[in-house]
Design a protein around this nucleic acid. Structure first.
Lengths: 133, 133
DNA sequence: AACTCACGAAACATATTAAGTTACATGAGT
DNA sequence: ACTCATGTAACTTAATATGTTTCGTGAGTT
């Protein structure tokens, strides 16, 4: 699987946007993130749905930060992007009644959950202003 | 990316193999894991390279467990499979000198590392005999 | 020696997901 | 009317795990 760099990219651009007086267009953001304007709209759209940014059409339009950096955490952005699972490791499909398979999957699920919980807890402790220069 | 179920599958079959008197053929293993014999050879080959299993050709051949379940941990198998990163989350490519981007990536890298360290530490604490019925 | 069994490995196909791209519709300001 | 910028659908590309076919090779059987 290809790595999902959306979280990194969105954190990056949101911090930039905090300095901006004018709305940032998708084209402008795409240049900064070295990607495509449509990818920007697609991803920023997730953040707009949660109210973290606002989009304006037409002349002088673009994307504007809607909250203070101190008021959003890495976890907020992570959740806004709606990632299903943070792991490449998966469980086997339990198509049988095999108790060994179930025990293996249970152990792996518990270990993965503990690891993910730690990651998300840390994400929740870091607000974006702590990453700003 | 599709989920990597190799760890789950290998743990499952290794525990089964501990009960077996005869070597298990790739075809037999494929049936238990509900997959393909070639996939079995490909994945079991990783474990053979580390000495955890032995393969024998010809009549009466197949795969045999080469160590006691108590002597291998989830971490051993995980490492044998040579997974690069356990996360779907990746960092952005730092093609610029942007300090914000670097700060974001540093924070994410640290958080991911702490989470992965916890996962691997737990994997290292669990030997396969603890999952056997 | 011929036959069968089972691994080894190359080559190709499939599935999933992030990302990139093209094209067009829609709404807002000039 | 014209231009700018988002919204969205559809398609393409890339990476990776998995599945499949085919043939080679070594080992035991008849």
């Amino acid at each position: 699987m290809r790595k999902d760099s959306r979280l990194s990219r969105m954190l990056h651009i949101l911090i930039h946007m905090d300095h901006m007086d004018e709305p940032a267009t998708s084209d402008h953001i795409a240049i900064i993130l070295q990607t495509n304007p449509v990818v920007v709209r697609r991803t920023m759209g997730c953040l707009r749905d949660k109210g973290y940014v606002t989009s304006v059409k037409g002349h002088g339009g673009g994307w504007r930060l809607n909250v203070a950096l101190a008021d959003i955490t890495l976890l907020d952005i992570h959740n806004a992007l709606g990632e299903s699972s943070v792991f490449t490791i998966g469980l086997s499909d339990e198509n049988t009644e095999c108790l060994i398979e179930k025990a293996v999957n249970r152990e792996l699920a518990n270990a993965l959950k503990a690891s993910e919980d730690l990651l998300l807890a840390r994400f929740g402790e870091v607000s974006l202003d702590k990453l700003a220069i």
